[in-house]
């Protein structure tokens, strides 16, 4: 399959989806596919909490879940529909910065967060609609430019954003959320759980989408734009929806990062961060939320362990993108699932 497939690519893979149709073929549905994904994710979050020995692990774990959430948005855009965005860090940063700036102007954190997410979605809607009528190349180029523009504003408007040095995020602490229900957690643990739960909800939503009428239309566009149109799918509108949804995922992830870290810099909106998100999706397998999780896990955890990663970050990321596309175009999760199935049969 390597390198010669004419139809396969970063595409609807096995895992999530195959299980989905099987469970439905049976006709009875005790537990929906979305709820099942949610429970699996929560179990994984809990597993982390069981084995983590220190706050440092919780902090890295939090980052893994935040990245998983952002990459799930890429999965919707790239894996479901087949569109590449090179500016998703821009939406991520909008979520982060509005959440950070809000409290400075007397807006409470949750409201600021909602505002940031809404702003990112609105921007995606306005920018996406005209561009998405055109070929896939245009979105990649336009988002590349949009991301740079956002990064530029964040770096230059120091009065608002603190400039290149970044800004401190004041506001809420997740500990208080847990105190309300009588649980006393350390701050790092509390954020870990919040990030994990939000990522689980995000994954459930993405899985629901895949098996729904709207999701089938998106996946149809991925495989054949022409056929989708012939079945009455308004392709430009469907693509625009996917783009907005994925921008919202990125913005929520950004807002969480701002709050959990307490500090943000314009690099959260930088080009390399956008590339990192796409690489995570491509590596794990852009077709499923499990691919998002695996990609985010590997590319978040590895740099903590391997210093070579920090020194050669660009070469590693770029190399992963090219090699994955040539050797296992659908990504790690489907690749391993295929190997597994072949061994079994």
């Amino acid at each position: 399959m390597a390198g010669q497939g004419t139809t396969t690519d970063v595409a609807p893979a096995g895992t999530g989806r195959r299980e989905y149709s099987k469970s439905e073929g049976a006709g009875r549905r005790r537990i929906g596919p979305g709820l099942r994904t949610f429970l699996i994710f929560v179990a994984l979050v809990a597993l982390g909490a069981l084995i983590f020995p220190s706050s440092y692990f919780y902090r890295v774990g939090t980052l893994v879940w935040i990245n998983t959430l952002a990459v799930t948005g890429i999965v919707v855009l790239l894996g479901y529909v087949g569109l590449v965005s090179l500016g998703h860090a821009g939406f991520f940063a909008i979520g982060a910065y509005v959440t950070a700036i809000g409290p400075n102007y007397g807006i409470p954190s949750p409201l600021a967060m909602a505002g940031g997410v809404a702003l990112a979605g609105l921007l995606a809607l306005i920018v996406g609609r005209p561009i998405l009528k055109l070929s896939g190349y245009y979105l990649a180029i336009a988002t590349l430019g949009l991301g740079m523009l956002i990064w530029m504003v964040l770096s230059k408007e120091a009065w608002l954003t603190g400039g290149p040095d970044g800004m401190v995020v004041s506001g809420m602490n997740a500990r208080n959320l847990f105190k309300m229900v009588g649980l006393s957690l350390k701050s790092a643990e509390a954020w870990y759980w919040v990030a994990g739960l939000v990522a689980a909800i995000g994954a459930a939503i993405a899985v629901n989408l895949a098996g729904s009428p709207s999701g089938r239309a998106l996946r149809a566009i991925h495989d054949s734009d022409v056929a989708a149109r012939s079945l009455g799918v308004d392709v430009a509108k469907a693509k625009s929806r996917a783009f907005v949804i994925s921008a919202i995922y990125a913005a929520v992830a950004g807002a969480l990062l701002a709050l959990a870290n307490g500090y943000i810099t314009p690099d959260t909106g930088g080009f390399m961060h956008s590339v990192e998100m796409v690489t995570m999706a491509v590596l794990g397998g852009a077709a499923s939320v499990y691919g998002a999780l695996v990609g985010a896990l590997i590319l978040t955890a590895l740099p903590q362990v391997l210093t070579v990663f920090a020194d050669y970050e660009h070469m590693v990321l770029g190399g992963i993108m090219v090699l994955t596309m040539i050797l296992m175009r659908r990504g790690l999760v489907p690749f391993i699932a295929d190997l597994w199935n072949r061994r079994k049969s």
Partner: peptide, 16 residues
């Protein structure tokens, strides 16, 4: 056709 989907999903897309 939509090669990544099952036969059933292909036809279900027609119900859009």
């Amino acid at each position: 056709v939509f090669p990544q989907m099952s036969a059933l999903d292909n036809v279900m897309t027609g119900c859009h």
